[in-house]
Amino acid sequence: MSAAPTVGIRAPRPAHALFVLPFVAIYAVLLLWPLAKGVWISFHDHDLLSNDSFWVGLGNYKELWADEVFHQVVWNTLRFVAISTPIFVGLSLMLALALNRPGRLATLLRATFFCASVFSVTLVTLVWKLALMPERGLVAQAFQALGLPELPLLTSDHLALLTIALVTVWWIIGLPMILFLSALQQIPADIYEAAALDHTPRWRVLTHITLPSLKRAIVLATLIEVIRQFQVFPQILLMTNGGPNNSTRSIVQFIYEQAFMQLSLGYATAASQVLLAIMLIGVSAQLWLERDRGGAR
């Protein structure tokens, strides 16, 4: 017996495509076309000032492969992501667990942590540059009061990138914290009530109920932070300008300098395509690892 044809509002009609056509058009204009245009420009020697363009094929990519400065900025960016992302995810999760409770104090602390994330990058970097000033800064005075030697936090090749990562964490830790708070509030209270009736220890509740329920939120927060930290730029530009000795220069800063200071748009666009490829590889690896873990369970 053949199935009856679908009729009514659920029937497939070509006219239904009109409902998604505005989104598809905007998506194509704002994302797909710039992406394709960027790939096309990366195969050209494009002078931003004269607007002259010459086909060079893979010449820009070959030059990037041999560029020692580009190697350094890629390494700096990877280090920054590796330092900041685990701190973001771990610390924001701990804050969410600690502040996921009723009360005025918890509400005040949630608002305090979140408010820092709405500050402009200029304000944040100005405050921290004053705090990290040698001898007269708040951090230097704190070291002096404790009888400890002053650390060159922004002038050391080994400490500058770590310092910027910690400032970045202080600045926008409230956003992943809010994500985890919303995920915690979606866990049914009945599960915790059943665990309390069984006198389940808190650490077992955390490891067997809370963290497994937050798995998707943890993956989402990790992916968001990986993508965001790969694009680090303004705080580095304002705090160290890529120094000392290129130890904090990021890929985005390299792209900015090549495009708007060296006026080499083709070379800068090729570097942006490399950044996009690195981000896609990082996100794909994270998703693959999470899927592999889920399959193993």
Rank of each mutant, 00 (worst) to 15 (best):
Ile209Glu: 00
Phe70Ile: 10
Ala11Arg: 14
Arg136Gly: 10
Thr240Leu: 01
Asp292Leu: 14
Trp171Lys: 06
Val124Pro: 06
Trp33Asp: 05
Pro176Gln: 12
Trp65Asn: 11
Thr107Asn: 10
Ala96Asn: 07
Ala28Gly: 15
Asp67Cys: 09
Gln141Arg: 15
Val20Gln: 09
Arg216Gln: 15
Asn100Arg: 01
Arg291Glu: 12
Ala96Asp: 06
Leu21Tyr: 10
Leu48Met: 12
Ile191Met: 14
Phe143Pro: 02
Leu166Gln: 06
Tyr61Ser: 09
Asn245Arg: 10
Gly137Cys: 07
Pro14Gln: 05
Leu197Cys: 08
Pro212Arg: 13
Thr168Leu: 05
Val89Asp: 12
Ala160Leu: 06
Phe54Met: 04
Leu31Val: 15
Ile26Ser: 13
Ala28Trp: 08
Gln253Trp: 03
Ala268Arg: 00
Trp288Gly: 05
Thr6Pro: 03
Phe43Val: 13
His16Pro: 00
Glu257Met: 09
Ile41Ala: 09
Gln286Glu: 07
Phe254Val: 06
Lys129Gln: 14
Phe233Thr: 02
Leu126His: 08
Thr125Trp: 04
Cys115Pro: 01
Cys115Thr: 10
Arg249Ile: 04
Leu280Gly: 13
Gln273Pro: 02
Val219Phe: 06
Val81Asp: 12
Gln286Met: 15
His208Trp: 09
Arg79Cys: 11
Val169Glu: 00
Val283Tyr: 09
Thr210Asp: 02
Leu105His: 03
Tyr256Phe: 15
Pro22Ile: 10
Leu162Trp: 09
Val232Phe: 04
His16Gly: 01
Ile251Gly: 02
Asn246Tyr: 11
Tyr256Arg: 02
Leu132Pro: 07
Leu166Phe: 12
Ala196Val: 05
Leu154Val: 10
Gly294Thr: 15
Tyr61Asn: 10
Ser213Arg: 09
Thr77Arg: 07
Leu123Ile: 15
Gly147Gln: 09
Pro212Gln: 08
Gly242Ala: 09
Pro188Tyr: 07
Glu225Ser: 14
Thr77Tyr: 05
Thr107Cys: 03
Gly90Asn: 08
Phe233Leu: 07
Ile26Thr: 08
Ser284Val: 04
Ile9Glu: 12
Glu225Ala: 14
Ala268Asn: 08
Ala221Gln: 11
Tyr267Trp: 04
Gln235Trp: 00
Leu197Ala: 08
Arg101Ile: 07
Val124Glu: 02
Trp170Leu: 00
Leu181Asp: 01
Ala28Pro: 08
Arg101Asn: 00
Gly90Gln: 05
Trp75Asp: 06
Trp55Met: 10
Asn76Arg: 11
Thr240Gln: 03
Val118Gln: 03
Leu181His: 04
Val39Trp: 12
Gln253Arg: 00
Phe88Trp: 14
Phe230Lys: 11
Leu30Pro: 05
Gln273Phe: 08
Ala3Met: 08
Asn245Leu: 10
Leu138Val: 13
Arg136Met: 13
Ser264Thr: 02
Leu35Ile: 06
Ser53Asp: 11
Glu193Arg: 14
Ser156Arg: 01
Ala259Asp: 08
Ala17Val: 07
Ala11Gly: 03
Ala15Arg: 12
Pro212Thr: 10
Arg104Ser: 04
Ile236Pro: 01
Pro22Gln: 05
Lys62Phe: 07
Tyr256Lys: 02
Ala217Ile: 06
Met94Ala: 15
Leu58Ala: 11
Leu95Thr: 01
Ser213Ile: 08
Leu184Val: 10
Thr269Gly: 00
Val39Gly: 03
Gln186Arg: 13
Val7Cys: 01
Ser53Lys: 09
Leu32Ala: 15
Pro5Ile: 10
Asn245Ala: 13
Ala17Tyr: 14
